[in-house]
Structures are given as structure tokens and as C-alpha cells.
Amino acid sequence: MVYAYYPGCTLHQQAAGFRDSTAKSAQALGIELAEMPNWQCCGAVYPLARDNLFGVVSAARNLAAAHDLGQAMVTICSACYHVHKRTNRLMATDQDARAKLDAYVETEYDGSGEVLHLLEVIRRDIGFDALRERVKVPLEGLKVAGYYGCLLLRPQEELEFDDPEAPRILEDLIEGLGAEAVTFSHRAECCGQYLSLSNPAAAHRCSGAILRSARRAGAEVVVTSCPLCFFNLDEAQAELAREDPEFQPLPVLYFTQLLALALGAWEQPWLPAEHQVDPGPVLSRFKLPVAEPAGSEE
């Protein structure tokens, strides 16, 4: 089955590693992701105030387009997932909003389409237990901390993605890849989001607490699904190390990069350009057992 793949703006900009590792992983897993033609920016934030329909117009258009293709929409960026899923629900449950958005975007979409995160697709179409059999580079002994951030989990009534106080989906993925999942106290605490621009000190405090908590729990690497979380966690570390000589940098990855590595779909899924903290020292020990590289090279 083909999915309408919605990459989101940052994947074509600073999150190329996310984009490429997703493509390689999906291919290795046999998940068909067809990039939606003509997609546009989702707006990045779901307006929390009720009187602001304009903020979801763009997402509505994307949803209608996916529906017209007859495909479920799949995203990997937490923010895009959040905005689209909630807009979808709004259109399905609020007649007034649906009528206005449909009129505005000139469609007849009713919110009946599906919005999925790649993790949900893997869980549903393959299963994390079955994933083990596809792993070519088992990540034995690698301690991975799954960082959820905010946008995948809350509000739970609308997203229904996982339990907001005790989520499991990233841990299930990590264990399915043969690694050791490390849960830590701050795995669902906010990274600071756009505070990195308007109040960098604040954002550093948030990211610092998260990274330190992951370190204390024994993590060697952190995976995330959100380009902004990635940016905040990765970028803050230089400053954190300057402020506190005892700070131990912790490499951050997109979950698909780990996935691609384990599936043998990409020998070195971390693009040096993308990481302030180089994952090389931690990950380079994981190689395919046979010299021949599997899957497509970059």
C-alpha cells in the first residue's frame, strides 16, 4: 500500500539526514512512501486559540490533497504530525470549522482521512517484534534514550499516539532494533521550542535538563522525531559544555537514522554537517557483519 508522504519543510533544509534515512529505511522495510506533489508548509504550530482558523488552512489543504490521492498521509516530523492530525480531527468533529475550511481551500474534505506517523506505520504494518528479523546490524549493548518531546504526546485525547505520562513506542522500536532502551525522567519534557531564538538562555536550560537526565540514566545516544527538538538538543551542547566543564556531550539522532543503521540500509547514517555533537565515536562500532554494503548508498 502506498502512503502519501509529507516530508515537511525542514527535511529539505537542515534535516536532510532525517529525509535520507527515512527514504532508505522505508525502502528496506518495504513501506512505500510517495512524496505528495505540491505539498506546502503545515504552519509548524497548531493554533491553540479557538478563533484562529487561518492557522490550519495550510494543513487542511494538505489533508484534502492526500485524501484526493486516496492515500493515508504519513509524516515523520513531530510538528507536522501534530498539526495535521489535529486539523484532521477538527475537520471531522467541528462542522462549522469544516465548512469554513472546505470553502476556503475549495474542497469537500470531511476529516475522514488518516494521518499517521512513520512509527505507527511500522507498528501496524510490520510490528516491532517482527522488526527484529529485519535487523542486519543488531545494536547490541547500545544504550539509546528515546526523547518524545511534546508534540507527539499531547493532547492525548486528540493524538492518541501513546500514553503521555508513560509512552512506549520509541522504546519498543529501540528494543526491536536490538539496542537497550533507556527511559529517563525528562523524556517528555519540552526542549524549549522557539525559545532558542527569543530566549536562548531559557532554551538551553530546558535542553540541558533533558540531556543531563538522559546521561544520568546511562544513555549513549538520544533519538528524536522532531527537527526542532533535534536542533535545540544538539545546538545547545556547545554552550552547555562552556558553562559547565563537567557536562558530557550526548549525540542526538533522528530515529530513522538509527533505524537505517540497524537495517543495514545506510552504513553511516549521520551526516557530519548535521551534527554539532558527532555520533561517530558511539556508533561507528556498529557495522554490517559482511563487508558488502546492503541497500543503496548515498
Binding site: A49, R50, R154, P155, E165
Partner: peptide, 25 residues
């Protein structure tokens, strides 16, 4: 402006109040 819209307040409030939504207004 410092609110990141993380919705932790709305998750925890016993009366179901999402303060981020108020900030957005």
C-alpha cells in the same frame, strides 16, 4: 511569549484548562 505550547499544563490540570490556549489568544 515564553510559552512553548508544550501543553503540559493542559495535560495535568484537574479542571482541564489548557493555559497555552489562553496565551495564544
Amino acid at each position: 511569549w515564553a510559552c512553548t505550547g508544550c501543553m503540559t499544563c493542559g495535560l495535568r490540570c484537574p479542571n482541564g484548562i489548557e493555559v497555552g490556549a489562553i496565551n495564544d489568544v
